[in-house]
């Protein structure tokens, strides 16, 4: 039997510092259980995490590169959403 049909899983790991799960790569596996085992071998050889998620790659919906402008150009102009937009006197500028 060929492994060509083995599904691809995306791997996400939460580091010990309490941050969100972060995408680290992908593994092929026959099912989710063995995908977790493979991900553990491949991506946590140095204490990188305390939790692993594996998600079938084909279950992910992604925005298309052509949509980049439509989706992301508007916030670029909205500089008033950043604290540095507001100029305050030196005495209170640590606010």
């Amino acid at each position: 039997m060929s492994t060509a049909d083995w599904p691809l899983f995306e791997v996400f790991i939460r580091s010990r510092h309490g941050l969100s799960h972060k995408h680290v790569g992908s593994v092929h596996a026959v099912d989710a259980t063995s995908a977790l085992e493979n991900a553990r071998e491949l991506y946590t050889r140095r204490n990188e995490g305390t939790s692993i998620w594996v998600v079938p790659s084909n279950a992910i919906s992604a925005s298309a590169p052509e949509q980049k402008d439509a989706l992301f150009s508007s916030p670029v102009e909205k500089i008033y959403r950043h604290p540095s937009f507001y100029k305050l006197p030196a005495e209170v500028d640590k606010m």
Partner: peptide
């Protein structure tokens, strides 16, 4: 071995199969 796997994964994103 792990480094080989990371790299095969990266190559697969270009539309080529690991097999």
């Amino acid at each position: 071995c792990g480094h080989g796997q990371y790299l095969y994964s990266a190559a697969e994103t270009l539309g080529v199969g690991r097999d």
